[in-house]
Design a binder for these strands. Sequence first.
DNA 1: TTGCGTTAGTGGTCAGACCATTATGAAAAA
DNA 2: TTTTTCATAATGGTCTGACCACTAACGCAA
Lengths: 202, 202
Amino acid sequence: MSNQSKMKVYQEVLNEIRRYIEDRQLQDGDRIPSERELSEQLNASRSSIREALRAIELLGLIETRHGEGTFLRTYKPYQSVELLSTFVLTEANTKDELTDVQFMLEQLCLRELSQKESLELTSIEQMVSDHEAVHTTIFIQLFNLLGNQLLLKIWHLVVSFNQTIDQQRSNQLTIQPFLKAFINRQFDKALNYHMMMYDSTE
Amino acid sequence: MSNQSKMKVYQEVLNEIRRYIEDRQLQDGDRIPSERELSEQLNASRSSIREALRAIELLGLIETRHGEGTFLRTYKPYQSVELLSTFVLTEANTKDELTDVQFMLEQLCLRELSQKESLELTSIEQMVSDHEAVHTTIFIQLFNLLGNQLLLKIWHLVVSFNQTIDQQRSNQLTIQPFLKAFINRQFDKALNYHMMMYDSTE
DNA sequence: TTGCGTTAGTGGTCAGACCATTATGAAAAA
DNA sequence: TTTTTCATAATGGTCTGACCACTAACGCAA
């Protein structure tokens, strides 16, 4: 490995793998070269390759199948969940910041939606009748309605971190009125209900 | 390693380390046993120990110092967020989405600031006289004023990805009035100027 | 054609070696 | 005595090579 900078080899490997994925526009389910191939191509020992792979595996970015290979995987944070929860709990600041950001992003989403003229509400309306609808599910739909995939990803990332330390945020008592207000385009009312979700649990 | 379940060794090691920290109530800066000690105590090879340690190092939970040892470190999600962003932001995001998100985050920041009663504006006021002040610099200050480091980090990441394709967004003609309006707490006016920065270049 | 066993490729794990860096303490110098 | 110097031990960083376990693919036999 070109170890020019004093960066560790496994860090460099990380970058190389990322670049590899980027260049080839790999997507969910696509295969990554075998550890031995990477070892040869990147001129690093298999140990170092593995250190990098194990790290991104723990992050939830890849999936490893014994005897088959290593595969890209859409980010599912639940690998690191338990792990982080033990550590993060102590840091009150961090927890608050996470919650705040999640709240602000959701509020942002609602505000943006309120300025759209036409909204395709069928998916939302379905959830009113579905009493199992959860906070996360709902906002996935709402962010989808906005159409900005990047914002959805960012929000989803924040949520996943937040879920490690915090619990189910809203109950049916606030969710149903919230949804109904939103569908009727009473956005101020919806924003109020949304705020209540965070007030009640904090 | 007891490898009873088909869980990988490095996963078990992860749990053991977590338990170790928990039992002893270790805190920021405390030392973790050396790789060789852990290897012996947990009955696992040093490679497996290292795979586990590298993983949590990447998460930002520990810090490693060559020749000294491995130390616990207060967890801040910034590192993980940054790492994940390189994977998440890279994926097929259109330039428009990046710009939109940047704009929305800045707007969010301004809105939040407008609701604060007291603002420490000295740092902002300095920039009015400093005619070299740049869009990025200004908003770093503004996000700092908000106080949420995570939001700043997210915005900054978006900007850094955006700058690769887009350049200097605002010129002095819009920046100066924007700053003055903000300082005088004319937030609606400031928001307008902010919008103009994006209108003119799009 | 169908079924089965061999085989090659892959990840999982280990042991041991060597290097680079740091801390420590003993010996030498002041 | 105090300070400096330097050898030594301990630590992380990296590599090599080996072996096991699992999977898929291929070819041969029924």
